[in-house]
Amino acid sequence: MTLSLPVTFLGDRSGLSASILGLGCSRLGSTLSGCGGAAAEALLRHALDAGVTLFDTANIYGQGESERLIGRALAGRRDEVTIVTKAGQRFTATQRVVALAKSPLRQLVHRLPGLRGAIASRRAAPLPRDYSPAHLQGAVEASLRRLRIERIDLFLLHSPSAEAIRQGAPFELLDRLVQAGKLRAWGISCDDGAAAREALRLPSVAALQLPLDVAQAMRPALTQAAGQGIGLMLREIFAGQAGDAAARAAALRVALQFERSVALVGTTSARHLDEAVEAARSITSPPSRPLETSA
């Protein structure tokens, strides 16, 4: 039985409602995280049972394994969840070859600490970007298959620069995919304020995803955007606060003060997720951000 957790309406442009907490799934299926298979599926089902209804992933997370895990774990409960995925970043040819050896690499990582460091360093480097309509069309179809769904609730361009947004290559395609029923709505995951400001100029953008520190620096613009029907997902809320539960709760309170917002908790620990859920339940909604309670 699903427990109660406050939910918020993400705005008229998407028409989506979701729990005020979302699970960030970037580490599920990762070679380094060690959270894959049955353990990852159990975490996903635990999150849903705890009242978390929004799951945020991307086609590159775990080389696609994050999406596959979500598809398997949440099968049969599609009407209870809001699924967010992203595309626009690509692996290099070397990374695609390495992905084929993912299972043995995961075993070696536990035996060879130096290998873990090498993989982590490699991952820190920026990936190539491709926001062409051809690439995104294929990415959407592949994500639908991995997620085992017929429509993505919210599809995000993954970390485009302000200049890439100004060029506007994929927007007509994304609007067509909404009309075709492949996407319910689309938005942009931004890494900085310049990209976010460009994104807010687009009439079809239904939601933004931002680091919390970027959102705080542009709060007035985001308040105005909420009034225009644009939703917000906040990430990197607990950056630099490992081991400090009080600081994490305070950061979560800051995130949940934004209108039409969902706070994303990226974790592979059921205990840490439960801590965030309990903190969110204890936070009183400000009057400007009415919340409903899920059944």
Rank of each mutant, 00 (worst) to 15 (best):
A221P: 13
A180R: 09
G193A: 12
A169L: 12
V178R: 10
S204C: 11
V205S: 04
I152R: 07
G229N: 09
R184V: 01
I188H: 13
C190F: 00
G168L: 15
L154N: 06
V178G: 04
G181V: 14
L212M: 11
D191T: 10
A206P: 10
R219L: 08
L157H: 02
G231Q: 10
T223V: 14
A196Y: 04
L210P: 05
A225P: 04
Q167T: 12
I152D: 11
S204Q: 14
L183Y: 01
G227K: 09
G193T: 06
I152L: 15
L177H: 01
L212P: 15
L202P: 00
P211V: 15
G168R: 04
S161K: 07
L174S: 14
I230Y: 00
L222A: 14
A206M: 02
L222C: 14
L183D: 02
A169D: 10
A225C: 03
G229R: 03
P160Q: 09
I230F: 03
A180M: 02
Q216N: 04
D191K: 11
A195L: 08
L183M: 12
P160L: 10
I165S: 15
A221I: 05
S189C: 09
A162N: 09
L157Q: 14
A217Y: 00
S161W: 06
L183W: 01
C190K: 00
V214C: 11
A164H: 09
A194V: 02
A221C: 08
A162H: 07
R201K: 08
A180K: 07
D213W: 08
L157P: 04
L222I: 15
P220C: 13
Q179K: 11
A169G: 02
E198D: 08
L177P: 05
A221S: 13
A225R: 00
P170N: 10
A225D: 02
A199D: 00
L173K: 07
V205Q: 12
P170R: 00
C190Y: 01
A169E: 14
I165K: 13
A225E: 04
E198H: 11
A199N: 14
A217C: 03
L183R: 01
A199C: 05
L212K: 13
P160S: 08
L208I: 00
G227N: 13
L173E: 04
L222M: 03
G187R: 02
A194S: 07
V178W: 01
